[in-house]
């Protein structure tokens, strides 16, 4: 059985970057002249905010259009193999294995 993984790092990264973008954009309207002068008059919050917003949207779009498919049978087989190896190691060492 194959199923789509909801726990996708791209949506997580995308969501955080998007929210950061929104907050920075809002903050850019309130950025004081003193703050702008720090960076030679560049309104850094505005530009970085825009870039992060677009980047965040692109990451989420990528995650939605090309989802990760988990092959559950393969996963089960892999898991058994690792557990067997761990068991074998534990026997070799007189029950001293099992580092999770």
């Amino acid at each position: 059985m194959k199923k789509v993984s909801l726990f996708d790092v791209r949506s997580i990264v995308g969501a955080l970057m998007f929210l950061y973008g929104v907050i920075l954009l809002l903050a850019s309207f309130a950025t004081s002249d003193a703050d702008k002068a720090k960076a030679d008059g560049v309104n850094a919050n505005l530009w970085v905010g825009l870039v992060l917003l677009v980047f965040g949207v692109l990451m989420v779009v990528w995650a939605v259009t090309r989802p990760i498919v988990v092959d559950e049978e393969q996963l089960e087989a892999d898991k058994r193999a690792v557990e067997e190896a761990a068991g074998r190691r534990a026997d070799d060492e007189g029950g001293a294995g099992g580092v999770g």
Binding site: L75, D78, K79, E83
Partner: peptide, 19 residues
């Protein structure tokens, strides 16, 4: 959510294998 969707550390590492 990692705790909710995976039951052990073995699970976690192997689900990472589909990345």
């Amino acid at each position: 959510s990692a705790r909710a969707s995976v039951s052990s550390s073995i699970d976690f590492f192997l689900s990472g294998r589909s990345l």
